[in-house]
Simulated scan of single mutants.
Amino acid sequence: MSERTYNAFFLCTGNSARSQMAEALITALSKGRIRGYSAGSHPSPAVQPLAAELVASLGINPSSLRTKSWDEFAAPNAPVMDFIITVCDDAAGEVCPVWPGHPAMAHWGVPDPALTPDDRQAFKDVWLVLRRRIELLCALRLDRLDHLAREQQLRLIANER
């Protein structure tokens, strides 16, 4: 039996680092089972170079990265999301658009490495936390969990470092 593909949406204010890294990580680590998307409430002009460098380590062409507004994903023809995960405290506190399909939601707050754009270790630390959480999400048997159980699991994963 083949499992369906799920859509995971990572939100941040600027969409320049954390959410970009999470989008790439989940798409790569899930091996096609979960498609990653990301956007910001107030997108930055460009993706942070150190975030793009880490994404490139997954074999993803960094020139394909771009910051996006979450309004793009609230449009009528946008993909329906199964999971909405905020990765910054600011975005978690904002009033979000209404997402169709009643996705499971959680907050996976991590520090913003873009505040210190030349600090390679800050980017790597965030990358490793996101990777660990995404590995745990990818290990779940999503087809055996109802909506409430999926949301509960997402929230439990938020405590993983």
Rank of each mutant, 00 (worst) to 15 (best):
D89L: 11
F73Y: 15
V110Y: 11
V110M: 15
K124P: 01
L115Q: 07
R133K: 14
A104S: 09
P103A: 09
A78E: 09
V95Y: 07
R132D: 15
L136Q: 12
V129H: 10
A114L: 02
E94P: 00
M105P: 00
D118Q: 11
L130G: 13
V87G: 10
V126Y: 00
V98I: 11
M105F: 10
G109E: 10
A74R: 04
A92V: 00
I85N: 03
I85Q: 03
L140P: 01
P76S: 14
R133E: 10
R132H: 13
D112R: 03
G101N: 02
C88L: 10
I134E: 14
P117G: 05
V110Q: 12
P117Q: 06
P103Y: 06
Q121C: 02
L115P: 00
A106G: 04
L142M: 14
F83E: 03
E72Y: 03
W99L: 09
L142H: 13
T86I: 03
I85V: 13
M105G: 00
D119F: 06
D112K: 01
P97Y: 01
V87I: 11
L136R: 12
A74H: 02
A78M: 07
A78P: 06
D112M: 13
P117V: 00
V98L: 10
D82P: 02
P113S: 10
L136T: 07
N77L: 15
A122I: 02
D82G: 04
R141G: 08
R141Q: 14
M105Q: 13
M81S: 01
L136S: 09
R133G: 14
W70Q: 01
A122M: 03
P111S: 07
L130C: 15
P97G: 10
A91M: 05
L140N: 06
R132G: 14
A104I: 03
T86V: 03
V126E: 08
W108N: 08
Q121G: 00
P117E: 06
A139R: 11
P103C: 09
A104L: 05
V95P: 06
P79M: 04
E94H: 07
V87S: 11
R141T: 10
F83I: 06
D71F: 03
A92Y: 06
V129G: 11
A122E: 04
P111A: 08
Q121H: 03
M81G: 01
E94M: 12
P76T: 10
A106K: 05
W70V: 02
P76A: 15
P117W: 01
A122D: 06
F73Q: 08
V95D: 10
L136V: 07
V129Y: 05
P79C: 07
L140C: 12
L136N: 05
P111N: 00
P97H: 11
A74M: 04
R133C: 11
C138Y: 14
